Computed example of a mutant assay.
Amino acid sequence: MTGEVLAPLRARYAYWLGLDDDEVLVDREEAAGDIRALQLLLRMERDRPPSWHTALAMAATGSAAICLDPRSEPDGEWYEAVRDYCAGHIRKVTRRGRGAQWEATAVLPGITMTDGDTEVRALVPGRVQDLDKRVAKLQVGGTDVEPDEVAARPADNALLIYLPPAPIMTLGKAMAQTGHAGMIAAALLAGDQPRLQAWLDAGLPSAVRRATVDQWTELARATADDGRAWTGERLLAVRDAGFTEVAPGTITAIARAGW
């Protein structure tokens, strides 16, 4: 089954949505040696800023693609790393790089996406304490750029991800949230192989919009049911552990599958 490695995330999704804020604080705690993360690398050359919308969409597509790659299937070279990551908290960290430091990460296992001046790398997840020095050199802060003009109407089969009107997150933080959305979508779709295959065949397209207050209110109401919104309207929610920028338990993204 494609996406078999995502089974623990699919099983955990509704449980995580159902926790109250105090329970989120308890649940998020892990021993330092157990913390794993998927690193999202954003190329930020001084004279060529990335597109806000494109970088966010790439984070979603890349995070899903890592888990659905043949190398993440049983007996694949990425399987153990991705399996262990999916079995716990799906932390993601966005880092920025340019010049030689960016080029040095090209040989690391992962997926690179390019569209014009926007480049994003999604790396195979691993223990944070074992982070490759070439990645550790890249800064976590300073990842923000101004939102650009919204792209054309998303493809009919795109995962359409909405960010809340408030709080306003930095691009790096928002990329982690859209990355979660892409990965959760892949996990939920793994239980519906024909739809998952259709998304895969299309290239795992994703699109991102900032919701209006009215849109967000409607979407939040529709997803406040511990996961049942996926069965009915193909809606999913991302709930953040609150380590940075937002309070624990904040819904940071809501996505609708386009098929």
Rank of each mutant, 00 (worst) to 15 (best):
L131W: 06
D144G: 12
D144V: 11
A81C: 09
A136W: 10
V145F: 10
C67M: 06
A122Y: 00
E73N: 02
V120K: 00
R127H: 04
A87D: 06
A155P: 05
G76T: 12
I111H: 10
G142C: 14
A136G: 11
V107T: 14
R134P: 03
H89P: 02
V145W: 05
V150E: 00
A100P: 13
D84Q: 15
V140Y: 02
Y79D: 08
A104M: 05
A155W: 11
G88A: 15
V82C: 04
V135M: 02
G110A: 05
R134L: 03
E149M: 10
R96G: 08
R98Q: 15
W78A: 03
G141Q: 07
R71F: 06
R98F: 14
G141P: 09
R83G: 09
W102D: 13
A81V: 09
V145C: 11
D144Q: 13
H89I: 14
P74E: 12
P109E: 06
R127I: 01
V82T: 10
A106R: 09
P109V: 07
D84M: 15
V107N: 11
P74T: 12
C67H: 05
R71L: 11
A136M: 13
Y85F: 13
I111P: 08
R96I: 11
L131I: 13
Q139F: 01
R98T: 15
P70E: 11
G99P: 08
Y79C: 12
C86Y: 05
L131F: 08
L123W: 00
R134Y: 02
T94D: 01
K137D: 08
N157L: 04
H89W: 09
P147R: 04
P70G: 05
D148Q: 12
G142A: 09
T112F: 00
P109K: 10
E149I: 10
C86V: 12
A152C: 13
P70W: 13
I161Q: 04
E103C: 06
T112S: 06
L138F: 00
Q101I: 12
E80T: 11
